[in-house]
Design a protein around this nucleic acid. Structure first.
Length: 810
DNA sequence: TTGAAG
DNA sequence: TAATACACTTCAA
């Protein structure tokens, strides 16, 4: 049988333990079991023969039960590409790995233990080279169990490439009774639960009748009825994928605790089994066997960390509006219990809101699901796992897969002393040229296409190729101004893996040109190339990350050193060409062109690229009409099409009041589009006047700062810390990652003393002087100062007639 | 005024 | 649980 590999897990509690694959074939999902797979780990030694014998005799204790290795073999593996006779310890049950490893660790002949930290479900996919969300071929015999059946494999499953199978994607959302603001799972019941899927199914369950005429509303008897009906719906509709917004942190844990309280089994699994929640360091994740659970919030969080989405608050409402471009109904959270109690119109409004949550998170899930599928196909781990991975983990699991293919041993993640040692190390990053400050016209921007990835590939940067024994110093290539040299004989597996990704992406981008933008095929190619880009761009960061398996400070340091070398060299060449280089940062340079230079741009690119080795390539990013340069990392430009691009300035930062940002934006537009600093000066005076006279919207005075750690851990009492403490005093829960919104109140004392959370600001009045002196003027002066204006010329003083300084044109 | 924390 | 560079505000010694 061939079908789509939808989900997979390892059943360690079964007897015998078995790997399970959920395979979708012609609309039906079949549970495929492989009890023949054996988990294992590797041990290296000076004397593998003797060690193998010793390990064969090891006995360990697993909770009072005696465990021994099932078998021990000597296998040929590689360590940094060098052959290594290695002892493979095969276990009967994956749960034996930890106790056995502890015993083995203490044997005298052991050098190092490898791959004990790879979970069996991931191990299985890697060893069989299966690709989740693609096809798999299985062969075996069916066995009846309970109401269903299982296929017991008689030979190992094999990958078979793409297969077509439609998926039923469902999204759900719960509303809980919350008289005190936040619902308390131990006593506050779930009052509503909404479900929507991509085939048009929708349902709102409620246990109070608000006499709604909407056909999707179903009134059940009580909370118990609601949860039981939900389980029944999931079974009847047989969804393939379960999603929701913040379901890992809120909906599932809450549902679990309520079900526990009422003694209900949450048998949402495809085999009727209960959901399992797994506590990780910072969060809890919920697994629904056979129905991959994807939390849309985790995806949004991932994209926001990468800078693909940039918002002040990542609420469902905000994200939906940003992504879909429409507003969804919102409901004041604190009024949920009131609406529930009072019923009528308010109750019906709550029903609509509840459904809209499920429907809009479904829309977001459909938007991001293709990306997750592509990431999953590249990394070759399940969509459940991949949707929760950081960029570094994506690279790492792809490398674990590639390492297995070439028999390379996978290094363990560091712990203890090794981790501390790595953490204490640092290295120099990208080169940033001090900008020429001021307003410039007629600009051109060049940048290196994927600078760090192409450096890694071109110079073969890899822990196995650094300072090799095979090349003399004449053959190998030295990192600029460093002692490290890179082998030119053998290729590293990291640069080789990366090269494949980059070439595959280039290929997809070529194919995209044959399809219309927005067409299905185009979108699918777009998502594939996007996934490849995300992973390719994370290789460098992974090399410098102290918790990474393939961490190499030397490699990371070499990458940035090559980067500095190439950008500096290119800046020099641009200057030799007669270009006036205004600014440069890491992989880009920005030049002011004289009229006659325009025709030389292509010649310059050609000249630079002739010199560039391997995959490296300088590209033309674009032409800009004007730009104002303030300092390193802070500037704004306007393209020839009139599009404004702002970097580093207050305008793009969330920890500044909107008022300061809007004023700065106005100033930048006046200067860049109109070329008129005089107009800019007028804007500033206008706004400061409004602030003094109290004619501003409170919304525009809010400053947002995100809590980075638990409130108790803050040593210094900054404004957002004190504002957060005030929230806590009034019973609000504080968590790292939360955004604190505050306004500075009029009065005396430090700014922190006067930082009032927005929710408690009520009838207070804001401090006009703070907003003028600490928000508007600094933001605006940043720009105006380089144009030759002084603060006095911009400040609105009651009657003083302002004189405008001479505008120094460039 | 300056350094640390953010 | 991907990297460094950089500018800047606020507090507190």
């Amino acid at each position: 049988m061939q079908g789509l590999l939808l989900d997979s897990d390892y059943l360690k509690r079964r007897d015998p333990p078995a790997m399970r694959l959920f395979v979708k074939k012609d609309g039906e999902v079949i549970s495929v079991l492989d009890p023949n797979f054996r988990h294992y780990f590797y041990v290296t030694s000076e004397d593998p023969e003797r060690l193998a014998e010793a390990i064969g005799n090891v006995e360990a204790d697993r909770r009072g039960e005696k465990v021994t290795p099932e078998s021990v073999e000597i296998v040929e593996k590689k360590l940094l590409q060098e052959p290594e006779e290695t002892v493979k310890v095969i276990v009967g049950n994956p749960r034996d790995v930890t106790p056995l490893r502890k015993e083995v660790r203490d044997l005298p002949m052991v050098i190092e233990i490898y791959e004990h930290d790879i979970p069996p479900s991931r191990r299985y996919l890697i060893d069989h080279e299966l690709t989740p969300m693609e096809g798999v071929e299985v062969e075996g015999e069916f066995r009846e169990i309970g109401e269903g059946k299982e296929l017991i494999v008689t030979k190992p499953p094999e990958p078979v490439g793409e297969v077509e199978e439609e998926l039923k994607i469902m999204s759900f959302d719960i509303e809980a009774y919350n008289p005190g603001g936040d619902p308390r799972a131990e006593k506050d019941p779930i009052v509503m639960l909404s479900v929507a899927d991509n085939k048009g199914f929708k349902k709102v369950l409620t246990w109070r009748d608000f006499e709604s005429t909407d056909e999707y509303v179903e009134v059940v008897e009580n909370e118990r009825g609601l949860i039981e009906r939900f389980v029944q719906i999931v079974k009847e509709e047989d969804f393939d994928v379960i999603t929701g917004y913040n379901t890992d942190l809120f909906d599932f844990p809450y549902l679990e605790e309520r079900a526990d309280e009422l003694g209900i089994e949450l048998g949402l699994g495809r085999d009727g089994s209960e959901i399992t929640s797994q506590r990780r360091r910072f969060e809890t994740v919920t697994n629904v066997p056979g129905r991959p659970h994807i939390d849309v919030y985790a995806l949004v969080d991932f994209l926001s960390r990468m800078g693909a989405i940039r918002l002040i608050n990542y609420t469902l409402e905000n994200v939906y509006e940003h992504v879909v471009g429409e507003t969804k109904p919102d409901f004041e959270k604190s009024e949920i219990s009131e609406a529930w109690d009072s019923g009528g119109v308010e109750g019906r409004k709550l029903l609509k809101y509840s459904l809209s949550d499920a429907e809009s998170s479904l829309e977001l899930a459909e938007e991001f699901f293709p990306l997750v599928v592509e990431l999953s196909k590249i990394v070759k781990q399940s969509i459940f796992d991949v949707s929760r991975m950081t960029p570094g983990q994506l690279v790492e699991w792809l490398l674990v897969f590639e390492a297995h293919r070439i028999d390379e041993l996978v290094p363990a993640r560091p712990a203890g002393r090794e981790f501390k040692r790595r953490q204490s190390k640092s290295y120099v990053g990208g080169y940033v040229k001090e900008p020429k400050k001021g307003l410039f016209e007629n600009l051109v921007v060049f940048d290196f296409r994927s600078l760090y990835p192409t450096i890694i590939v071109t110079h073969n940067i890899d822990p196995a190729t650094i300072d090799c024994d095979c090349c003399g110093s004449e053959e190998s290539v030295r990192a600029p101004n460093l002692e490290y040299e890179f082998c030119q004989n053998k290729r590293g597996f990291i640069p080789e893996t990366l090269r494949d990704l980059i070439e595959e992406r280039a290929d997809l981008k070529r194919k995209m040109k044959n399809f219309e933008e927005g067409s299905r095929k185009y979108q699918s190619l777009y998502n594939s190339q996007w996934a490849l880009k995300i992973i390719a761009n994370s290789f460098y960061g992974m090399l410098g990350y102290s918790r990474a398996r393939w961490y190499s400070n030397e490699c990371a340091e070499s990458v940035t050193s090559f980067g500095r070398h190439y950008i500096k060299k290119t800046i020099e060449m641009a200057e030799d060409e007669g270009f006036d280089v205004v600014y440069g940062d890491t992989d880009s340079l920005l030049c002011r062109l004289k009229e006659q230079d325009r025709g030389n741009v292509d010649d310059f690119l050609e000249k630079v690229n002739e010199d560039m080795p391997g995959m490296m390539e300088l590209e033309l990013e674009g032409f800009y009409k004007r730009g104002v340069f303030v300092s390193k990392k802070r500037y704004a430009m306007v393209s020839e099409e009139g599009k404004m691009e702002v970097k580093g300035l207050e305008f793009v930062r969330r920890d500044w009041a909107a008022l300061a940002k809007k004023t700065q934006e106005g100033v930048l537009k006046a200067v860049l589009r109109g070329g008129s600093p005089e107009k800019a000066a007028e804007i500033v005076q206008e706004v400061t006047k409004d602030v003094k006279q109290g004619r501003v919207d409170l919304e525009d005075l809010i400053i947002h700062t995100r809590l980075k750690k638990p409130i108790e851990e803050y040593e210094s009492e900054g404004p957002h810390v004190l504002a957060a403490r005030r929230l806590k005093l009034h019973g609000e829960e504080l968590e790292p990652g939360m955004t604190i919104a505050y306004i500075v109140e009029k009065g005396s004392g430090s700014i922190s003393d006067r930082a009032i959370p927005v929710s408690r600001f009520e009838n207070r009045s804001y401090d006009p002087d703070y907003y003028i002196d600490n928000q508007i003027l600094p933001a605006v002066m940043r720009v105006m100062e380089v144009l030759g204006y002084s603060e006095d010329e911009l400040r609105y003083e009651e009657t003083k007639q302002t004189k405008l300084g001479a505008f120094e044109s460039c």
